[in-house]
C-alpha cells in the first residue's frame, strides 16, 4: 500500500516535467497553428545556457531562469514575426502555408541545433542542482523535479485562466479555431498568436533550464524532446492546456507504476501504448471534433 502511494507520488512529481514540456508546444500549435519542430532545439539552447552560466559563473539556474525566460520570449516573438508571419503574408492564409510552415520549422530546427553543433559539437552537458531530497506524503522526491511540477502547474493554471476566463482568452481561442476567419471578428490575429507563441517559448525555456538540472543532454538530443512533447500534446489534445497537464502527469504515473510493479523494460512501451490508445479514442470523436 505504501509502495503504491509512493509510486503514485513520485510518478506525479516526475510527470511534472512532461506536463511542462508539452504545455509550451500545445499552446504554440493550438493557437499559433505552427508545428514548431524546433521546440526541442530551443529547449536545448536554454538548457545549454543555464549549464554554461552555472559552470562558468556559478550562476544559479534559478537566477538564469529570470534571464532566460524573457530572452526566450523575445526570441520567439521575433521568430514568429520575422519568419512565420512573413511566410503567411506570402502565402495569403494560414491554411495555404501549412506544408511550407513544416518545412520552415525543419529549417529553423536545423538552424538552432546547427548553430549549437558548430560551437559545442556533441559534447555532453550535465550538472546537478537542487538535488535535495524532499519529503512529500511519505515519499522522497528531488527538489528539482518538484520544482518542475510546481512550474507546470503554475504555467498550466495561468494558461487555463487566461484562455478560459478572460476576453483575451476568448479571442485567442477564436484564432485557434479559425485563424483565417478571426480577423473578420476584429481580432488582431498576428498580435495574439505571436504573444501566445512567445508564451510557449517561455515555457520551452523553463523546461530547458529545469531539464538541465537533472538530465544529461547534448545538442543532437533536441529532436528527442520535441518528440516527447508531441506525444504528450497528442494525448492531451492539441491546444488544450489542461489536457497537456493531465496527460503529462498520467505519463509520469504510468512510467512509475510500470517500472515499479511490472518491468522497467516496458516503461516506454507503456507510454506509447497510451499514446496509441489516445489516438484511437480520438478517432471516435472524443476529442476529435474540437481539434480539427
Amino acid at each position: 500500500m505504501t509502495s503504491i502511494l509512493d509510486a503514485l507520488v513520485t510518478g506525479l512529481v516526475y510527470g511534472g516535467i512532461y506536463a511542462l514540456l508539452a504545455l509550451g508546444l500545445t499552446l504554440q500549435y493550438g493557437v499559433a497553428r505552427i508545428l514548431n519542430l524546433a521546440y526541442g532545439d530551443f529547449l536545448i539552447a536554454a538548457a545549454v545556457f543555464a549549464t554554461l552560466l552555472y559552470q562558468r559563473f556559478q550562476l544559479s539556474p534559478l537566477v538564469s531562469l529570470l534571464l532566460l525566460l524573457p530572452a526566450s520570449f523575445l526570441i520567439h516573438l521575433l521568430v514568429y514575426h520575422l519568419v512565420f508571419v512573413q511566410l503567411e503574408r506570402r502565402r495569403g492564409s494560414w491554411r495555404a502555408m501549412e506544408a511550407s510552415s513544416i518545412l520552415l520549422a525543419f529549417g529553423l530546427s536545423f538552424v538552432v541545433s546547427g548553430a549549437m553543433l558548430a560551437i559545442f559539437g556533441g559534447k555532453l552537458f550535465s550538472y546537478s542542482y537542487l538535488l535535495v531530497p524532499v519529503q512529500l506524503l511519505g515519499s522522497v522526491v528531488p527538489a528539482n523535479r518538484l520544482l518542475a511540477l510546481v512550474l507546470a502547474l503554475a504555467f498550466g493554471g495561468f494558461a487555463y485562466l487566461l484562455l478560459v476566463r478572460t476576453r483575451i482568452g476568448t479571442a485567442i481561442r477564436a484564432i485557434a479555431v479559425d485563424p483565417d476567419g478571426a480577423p473578420l471578428a476584429g481580432i488582431d490575429v498576428r498580435r495574439w498568436a505571436g504573444l501566445t507563441f512567445a508564451f510557449g517559448g517561455i515555457i520551452c525555456a523553463a523546461s530547458g533550464v529545469l531539464i538541465s538540472m537533472f538530465q544529461t543532454f547534448n545538442v543532437p538530443m533536441g529532436v528527442t524532446f520535441t518528440l516527447k512533447a508531441l506525444v504528450v500534446v497528442i494525448m492531451g489534445g492539441v491546444g488544450n492546456a489542461v489536457g497537456a497537464l493531465v496527460a503529462g502527469l498520467i505519463l509520469g504515473v504510468t512510467e512509475s507504476f510500470v517500472a515499479r510493479f511490472i518491468s522497467p523494460g516496458l516503461t516506454l512501451a507503456a507510454v506509447y501504448g497510451l499514446f496509441v490508445l489516445a489516438v484511437l479514442t480520438m478517432r471516435t470523436g472524443i476529442f476529435g471534433r474540437a481539434l480539427r
Binding site: L104, F106, V111, A115
Partner: peptide, 15 residues
C-alpha cells in the same frame, strides 16, 4: 557547420 547551412537553405528555399 553543415546542419546550420542546411537549415538556412531550407528557410531560404521556402521563401
Amino acid at each position: 557547420t553543415y546542419t546550420l547551412i542546411l537549415g538556412l537553405l531550407f528557410m531560404v528555399i521556402v521563401f
